[in-house]
Design a protein around this nucleic acid. Structure first.
Lengths: 147, 147
DNA sequence: CACTTTAGTTGCATATTGCAACTAAAATTT
DNA sequence: AAATTTTAGTTGCAATATGCAACTAAAGTG
């Protein structure tokens, strides 16, 4: 994978990896909406085009943010799952949620915010840990139905 | 300002505003590197082209992430400063720093990380508050030299 | 009054994103 | 087992964003 960093700054370098229009959206689809196949991702509200989805999934696999595998009994469906590296973007997702709640409600009238913000403000670390462990448990169940 | 949101998701909507290659980099230049004029920003390590810088500053002003003003005694130099909305992106910047430290050191050998990560891990909220208050004090000093 | 600084603009090339239609293999239905 | 549907893409083309390099105009400086 050809990383291409603009400079030595850690912040800019992180943005060289995840600073685009789609990667963090895809992380959200996987982490918070439980989507783990190509088709369920393409059917999301965001309406991502299939060529873009293909390209971004390939890129994210190269960056080791996600993994692509198949179940033993199905040669067709690809299961995409977040790696630890991808999962560790959870705090970023959390901060985007908080920023939206604080700053976009007035300019975006159909913005859909539930009670996540209160939960996060009450126990940020707990929410992050819960999201991660629920994700891992779910994917383990999908990839290792027994055990 | 014509916001254009893909859907009702708060995370995706936040990315509709700041999810590009430059906006958060510019926030960093202002917040952490003390740059507040066009020329000092263009001279940063990131090497941003002047047409892009012009376009992004205009966009950020439209989004009310930054403000553009002049000092009374200088009709030439524009002073760009972060609004509260822009300043509240600080936690996002912090998380990008942490993610870089945890995940890019091995693939980016010239990545420059100091002791920020320890400070953040020791007192995240304190670091965020300190960055914000130092920024506000500095800009106040520049825009209101007396008082 | 010449020179430099500041903040851009302009023209053009390349890269990224987006749309719509199409495809091939695997799985499912009849 | 043949036809249909599902899954995961690919392909061609248009539009938008990013990048490079040279240029400019107004303001400030020596």
């Amino acid at each position: 994978m050809e990383y291409n960093f603009r400079c030595t700054c850690p912040i800019t370098s992180a943005l060289d990896v995840v600073g685009d229009r789609w990667i963090l959206v895809i992380v959200k689809l996987m982490l918070l909406e439980g989507r783990y196949t190509f088709n369920t991702m393409k059917e999301s509200d965001e309406g991502i085009a299939t060529n873009i989805l293909t390209a971004k999934l390939k890129l994210m696999e190269g960056y080791e943010l996600i993994r692509k595998e198949k179940l033993p009994n199905n040669k067709k469906t690809n299961i995409y799952s977040l790696t630890d590296r991808g999962l560790s973007l959870t705090p970023l997702i959390i901060e985007l949620t908080l920023w939206s709640d604080a700053h976009l409600k007035d300019v975006h009238d159909t913005l859909k915010i539930g009670n996540e913000v209160e939960l996060i403000n009450h126990d940020r670390e707990g929410v992050i840990a819960a999201i991660k462990s629920q994700y891992l448990a779910k994917m383990k169940d999908i990839l290792n139905p027994d055990t």
